[in-house]
């Protein structure tokens, strides 16, 4: 069987389509997360996603529809804990993360275990994504990227210097809430692509790789998105060809891109040292 035959399968097409949109979404948000030192928020919200997926399975509802509102509430919860209780950001993420995992395990216990279904949420199963989930993923991805475009200048300002952004009249609290909600959507959608345990990789790795290669903010987002899409497309095809888990394959291809980016950066650094006066 050759590549063209694989591409003719409906489930492969759905995986490539949904995966590409979600990859762009995660990469764009990931640049802001990495620069704001909020990389671990992906992990925290992923664990909340695990809890909400367990709840959805117990209720026998679509996990996507249950998870989006719950994980959005978790994102706002992290912000509120940080603002209202003087809790450090990483501690607030830890609290939400613990509630998510413990809640998921408790619900799994109450339901007598979900076995294979819950396992697919932990490690991703993009090749099993259905037409409705593809449509929802594409629409939500477009909405989130459009929202980032509308709030781009405010997000850049807050990312660079929150205090000066506040001093120039930008409503930093509202911007942080919008950003938290967008991240929550990205995390829930990524659950199908790479699984709960690897969601933060999809958010962090393309952004970190792009930061090795670019010199402006817009270029960083564009390169991160390109790397993310290439990783997802290659990961899906390689995992299908070699019968490997798709989520882990996508992450490993991302890691190869990062290694290449670091090597490029190092070479550029050396070249700069040689040419500088």
């Amino acid at each position: 069987m050759n590549w063209m035959e694989w591409l003719s399968f409906g489930f492969v097409q759905r995986a490539l389509l949904a995966g590409s949109f979600i990859a762009v979404l995660c990469a764009v948000l990931g640049v802001f997360l990495v620069l704001r030192r909020l990389s671990l928020i992906g992990d925290g919200l992923a664990h909340a996603t695990f809890g909400s997926a367990a709840l959805a399975l117990w209720l026998q509802w679509n996990p996507l529809y249950v998870s989006v509102p719950i994980v959005m509430a978790s994102a706002l919860g992290i912000l509120k804990l940080t603002e209202k209780t003087r809790m450090y950001g990483d501690a607030a993420i830890g609290v939400v993360s613990a509630v998510g995992i413990a809640g998921g395990v408790l619900i799994a216990g109450l339901a007598g275990g979900f076995n294979v279904d819950l396992f697919s949420f932990l490690f991703g199963s993009i090749l099993t994504i259905g037409p409705l989930d593809v449509a929802v993923s594409v629409i939500l991805s477009v909405v989130v990227v459009a929202a980032v475009s509308l709030f781009y200048q405010e997000l850049l300002s807050v990312t660079f210097d929150e205090e000066s952004a506040r001093a120039s009249g930008i409503r930093v609290g509202a911007i942080n809430q919008v950003f938290g909600l967008l991240t929550a959507v990205a995390v829930v959608l990524s659950m199908k692509v790479v699984g709960v345990l690897l969601i933060s990789a999809l958010l962090i790795l393309p952004a970190v790789t792009a930061l090795q290669l670019t010199r402006s903010f817009r270029a960083t987002m564009a390169v991160a998105a390109a790397i993310a899409v290439l990783s997802v497309l290659a990961g899906i095809l390689v995992s299908f060809a070699l019968d490997l888990p798709s989520g882990a394959t996508i992450v490993f291809i991302n890691i190869l891109f990062l290694a290449a980016g670091l090597a490029f950066r190092r070479r550029e650094g050396r070249a700069g040292e040689k040419t500088s006066p």
Binding site: F160, D161, I170, L211, S216, F217
Partner: peptide, 29 residues
């Protein structure tokens, strides 16, 4: 000190942020 060593925005992008104060949503330069 808050300027991250690897922060990727150009000087022009950062100076332009000062112009946001007078803008209404959506803040487009």
């Amino acid at each position: 000190a808050f300027v991250t060593p690897r922060f990727p925005a150009t000087v022009r992008e950062i100076v332009a942020l000062g112009r946001l104060a007078g803008k209404r949503f959506p803040k487009i330069l």
